[in-house]
């Protein structure tokens, strides 16, 4: 696992991931008493770690091929942008699933788990990583049974038709996987990857930002605020800068 930035076990990261759940574990306290001045120390900040494509950390090769095929239908290659696969949406999802999102480590996961009203949100016991593992397997098991083919073996228009059925909840996937719910998770994560800063692996060369005209991380528009209805002239910039600043492999 290679990272552009060194990973530091930062106090807040630690708190949000481990300590809150294991208060009886060996005592490690980040509690501080602060008095007398604003506390400041050099390098105290907590920059993001940049995703470097290459290899899979959560998906098996077969799952990865399926997810790449799905994201390439949700965000197809056309004259507006590259497709979801080339943009890195599957890489984005892979890395999210090995992090706090995948394991719901920041969420409330205590039972009992009961049937929910629509207004009460997701009440399942499975975390996103478990939902992907089960959901992807269920998709291919269903398709093999029905069509004799896996998703990646279908033609693009057949893939679209199946995703449309999933979105509408019209297919009964095996092992209790709810098609519409899993589709919603896939769609949410694909869009996150496509539109997030490229440092997370899924918006290669700011493809979606160029498509929309979103300038990204610029942070100062004082020179354009009064120019109503006039196009903003500058191209986007990422937290990690621009691809041409980063050299080969960026």
């Amino acid at each position: 696992m290679s990272h552009r930035y060194p990973i530091r076990m930062n106090r807040r990261l630690f708190l949000s991931s481990v300590a809150m759940l294991t208060i009886t574990a060996p005592a490690v306290s980040f509690a501080r008493t602060i008095s007398g001045s604003l506390p400041w120390e050099p390098m105290a900040s907590d920059p993001p770690a940049r995703v470097i494509p290459g290899g899979w950390q959560f998906f098996t090769p077969k799952e990865a091929a399926l997810v790449e095929a799905i994201v390439d239908r949700l965000v197809p290659h056309d004259d507006l942008s590259i497709g979801g696969k080339e943009a890195g949406c599957a890489v984005y999802i892979d890395r999210q699933l090995v992090g706090a999102f995948g394991t719901s480590s920041r969420l409330y996961t205590q039972g009992p788990f009961k049937p929910a009203l629509p207004t009460q949100g997701y009440q399942g016991e499975a975390d996103p990583a478990q939902r992907y593992r089960a959901g992807l397997a269920a998709m291919d098991a269903f398709l093999k049974q029905r069509d004799g083919k896996t998703f990646v073996e279908l033609k693009p228009e057949e893939q679209d038709a199946f995703l449309t059925e999933m979105e509408a909840g019209k297919v009964d996937l095996p092992n209790g996987v709810k098609a519409a719910g899993f589709f919603g998770l896939l769609l949410q994560n694909t869009m996150e990857g496509f539109f997030a800063d490229p440092i997370y692996g899924g918006n290669k060369d700011m493809a979606s930002w160029r498509m929309l005209g979103f300038p990204g991380a610029r942070y100062d528009y004082r020179d354009h605020v009064a120019k109503h209805n006039q196009p903003y002239p500058l191209t986007p910039v990422s937290i990690a800068g621009r691809p041409e600043w980063l050299g080969k492999g960026a």
Binding site: L38, P39, W40, D197, I199, R218, Y219
Partner: peptide
């Protein structure tokens, strides 16, 4: 946690949606 502009709201990566 303690939070402050200089350490936590960093202009290099505050714009991370």
């Amino acid at each position: 946690p303690w939070r402050d502009t200089a350490t936590d709201f960093n202009i290099g990566y505050a714009q991370d949606e």
